[in-house]
Simulated assay, not measured.
Amino acid sequence: MFKGHCFPKAIILQAVYFKLRFSLSYRYVEELLSIRGSKVNHANIKRWVFKFTPLVEQQFRRRKKLVGKRWRLDETNIKVKGEWRYLHRAVDKEVNTVDFLLTKKRQRISAQKFLIKAIENNGLPNKFGINF
């Protein structure tokens, strides 16, 4: 998958990690990599993020802690950078996070899609017959 790229796998994954983990702009990621000694254009970083995000997400899902069969969905308001946001979070009995969703507005459709995604990603049976 990394064959044919001008940069080593470690640099590509580091750039993708910075972008996904810390929500930095592509130019900030470019600056961080240049401080570490790698001259990478922000356009390349953008391409890498689009190309390798599914791979990173797949690896993350494999290594994620197993959650219990029972979990709860919670909605709350939090302040992010001075603006109020809606946080939907699914947690199990041991308070392991199953999944979360952060939105600007309180939208029923987004919450329903989040619930379906959380159910499907954790292999839980849809015993309540939830169909949206």
Rank of each mutant, 00 (worst) to 15 (best):
residue 9 K to T: 15
residue 9 K to G: 03
residue 13 L to Y: 07
residue 14 Q to Y: 01
residue 16 V to G: 00
residue 16 V to R: 00
residue 16 V to T: 05
residue 17 Y to E: 01
residue 17 Y to P: 00
residue 19 K to G: 00
residue 19 K to H: 14
residue 19 K to D: 07
residue 20 L to M: 10
residue 20 L to C: 14
residue 21 R to T: 12
residue 22 F to G: 01
residue 22 F to L: 12
residue 22 F to S: 02
residue 23 S to F: 12
residue 24 L to Q: 04
residue 27 R to W: 07
residue 27 R to E: 12
residue 27 R to G: 00
residue 27 R to M: 08
residue 28 Y to D: 14
residue 28 Y to V: 09
residue 30 E to V: 01
residue 30 E to A: 13
residue 30 E to K: 09
residue 31 E to V: 12
residue 31 E to Q: 11
residue 33 L to N: 00
residue 36 R to K: 15
residue 37 G to M: 08
residue 38 S to Q: 06
residue 40 V to C: 08
residue 41 N to T: 10
residue 41 N to K: 06
residue 41 N to E: 02
residue 42 H to R: 09
residue 42 H to Q: 08
residue 43 A to H: 08
residue 45 I to N: 00
residue 47 R to F: 02
residue 47 R to M: 06
residue 49 V to W: 02
residue 51 K to T: 09
residue 52 F to H: 04
residue 53 T to Y: 06
residue 54 P to L: 13
residue 55 L to A: 04
residue 56 V to C: 04
residue 56 V to S: 01
residue 58 Q to K: 15
residue 58 Q to Y: 13
residue 59 Q to N: 01
residue 60 F to T: 03
residue 61 R to C: 08
residue 61 R to G: 02
residue 61 R to V: 09
residue 61 R to A: 15
residue 61 R to P: 01
residue 62 R to Y: 08
residue 63 R to V: 07
residue 63 R to W: 15
residue 63 R to L: 14
residue 64 K to S: 11
residue 64 K to Y: 07
residue 64 K to E: 08
residue 68 G to C: 07
residue 68 G to L: 08
residue 69 K to M: 10
residue 70 R to W: 09
residue 70 R to Y: 13
residue 71 W to I: 04
residue 71 W to A: 02
residue 72 R to N: 12
residue 72 R to A: 09
residue 75 E to F: 07
residue 75 E to I: 09
residue 79 K to Q: 14
residue 80 V to W: 03
residue 80 V to M: 05
residue 81 K to Q: 12
residue 81 K to R: 14
residue 82 G to L: 07
residue 82 G to N: 00
residue 82 G to C: 07
residue 83 E to W: 03
residue 83 E to G: 02
residue 83 E to H: 10
residue 84 W to Q: 03
residue 85 R to N: 06
residue 86 Y to E: 03
residue 86 Y to M: 04
residue 86 Y to P: 00
residue 87 L to V: 09
residue 87 L to N: 01
residue 88 H to L: 11
residue 88 H to C: 05
residue 91 V to R: 01
residue 92 D to M: 13
residue 92 D to H: 11
residue 92 D to R: 04
residue 92 D to V: 08
residue 95 V to N: 14
residue 96 N to C: 10
residue 96 N to L: 06
residue 97 T to D: 02
residue 99 D to K: 06
residue 101 L to G: 02
residue 101 L to A: 03
residue 101 L to N: 00
residue 102 L to N: 02
residue 104 K to C: 04
residue 105 K to W: 06
residue 106 R to Y: 05
residue 106 R to M: 04
residue 107 Q to M: 06
residue 107 Q to T: 05
residue 107 Q to C: 13
residue 108 R to M: 05
